[in-house]
Design a protein around this nucleic acid. Structure first.
Ligand SMILES: [Mn+2]
Ligand SMILES: [Mn+2]
Ligand SMILES: [Mn+2]
Ligand SMILES: [Mn+2]
Lengths: 219, 219
DNA sequence: TAAAATTTTTAGAGTTGCCTAAAAATGATT
DNA sequence: AATCATTTTTAGGCAACTCTAAAAATTTTA
């Protein structure tokens, strides 16, 4: 039996190993879960005993196949619930993460299957993150960002790299939501800020911090 | 902050005080929560400190106003989720209780409100139990049972008193589901078993154990 | 009403998951 | 290579919730 705390550790280790930067070091996991390094060491030992995590003292941790399957299952539930909250209950995309953090721990495979079917098997969550299927297969995560769009070219916004509420609210305010078509009008070398045309209409200026956190797909 | 365990104790005390039979004695609570009497004593002390429960040593416990409000809120969530699971996800009425036991602890008043609205403010859950509204107002629970229906009279099935899966599955099998119209054809004094006409069609014989656990409303 | 049966509480302890403080290991700097 | 800074682990402890065994209170029965 996997506890709620254990599920959260597995998810944290998974996501730290996705973004390539030192992987799941003790401190990185502690930071991610807002806990202390000593607590992480305790848990890594336990998860290692349970054969869910590969762990050797003083080294970053990684997931075993079993650990990976559990992490992906939790992520599947998180993203399906986020989709449900936005599509059916009409929450905004900056309001769902916290609730999904709770819902992702509900244990019932029948529930997940039926929810998936009720939602008509969505492929992406409200933030553009891919939803793993029943077998744990997961689409490659987006990798091209708006800051890499050449001047004069067009693309669609397909996801966000940064998930903070303030970022999501900013995007709502300037109408840079998922699905929006954008054209790169100009980019300034000085600070990499850019002028972007939104949905074939108005032009706005966005900072590098914005454009490097928006995933796009070329048209 | 109320923990998951505390919420379950409050709910147990609430329901033991509804059915009039000695109320929430230590042993009754232990039985209901499948735990030991000594654990119950500990928790009653804690809930009493928190002013959620009225408790004096060796006496059955009852809820304070604050404890009652919390219990009713948890029950509201339980029954709304059960309704969701049956109406939207197409679960059967004998499959939802266990899942709702988990979902009832999700903390977000916005979620409950939006779920209620999405479901169009249902008044009863799949077992005929009343769903409290946002303000905690709850319809009187049904009180007439099929065993009290006089011979020759008709009624609708509106709820179940017993919630076990085997009972619910039996009812499915003999088509004595919620909303069914029944007519009492005959009752045998010997064992109080009864012949019932179902939906104006076939007659079946049911034991006293069945008929005393079915809530009805006279036509 | 005294003994017996039952219920309830207390005492002591285990598990999980977290913490602080201190020790040990690792990595970077001279 | 020795020192310093950082990271990680260990040691010891706390809170929530649970348990078993034993003691105390209450209720039932004779
Ligand atoms: Mn999320
Ligand atoms: Mn998301
Ligand atoms: Mn239920
Ligand atoms: Mn119910």
């Amino acid at each position: 039996m996997i506890s709620l705390a254990e599920e959260n550790y597995l998810k944290a280790i998974y996501s730290l190993n996705q973004i390539q930067q030192g992987g799941a070091s003790t401190n990185a996991v502690a930071e991610k879960l807002d806990t202390k390094a000593s607590s992480v060491t305790d848990m890594l030992k336990k998860l290692s005993e349970k054969k869910l995590v590969n762990y050797t003292k003083y080294q970053p941790a990684s997931l075993t196949n079993r650990g990976m399957a559990i992490a992906i299952d939790v992520i599947r539930k998180h993203r399906l619930w986020e989709f449900f909250l936005v599509e059916k209950l009409k929450f905004k995309w900056d309001e769902v993460h916290e609730i999904a953090e709770q819902l992702e721990h509900i244990r019932s495979s029948a529930l997940v299957d039926r929810l998936d079917s009720f939602l008509e098997y969505p492929k992406f969550d409200p933030h553009g993150d891919p939803i793993p299927d029943k077998e744990g297969r997961i689409n490659k995560i987006h990798d091209t960002v708006l800051s890499a769009l050449p001047i004069g070219e067009e693309a669609h916004i397909v996801g966000v790299k940064e998930h903070s509420n303030s970022f999501l609210q900013y995007l709502d305010a300037v109408k840079l939501v998922l699905g929006t078509r954008v054209k790169l009008i100009n980019r300034f070398e000085f600070d990499q800020s850019a002028i972007v045309q939104i949905a074939g209409k108005e032009n706005i200026t966005i900072s590098f911090d914005i454009s490097k956190n928006l995933y796009i797909k070329f048209i």
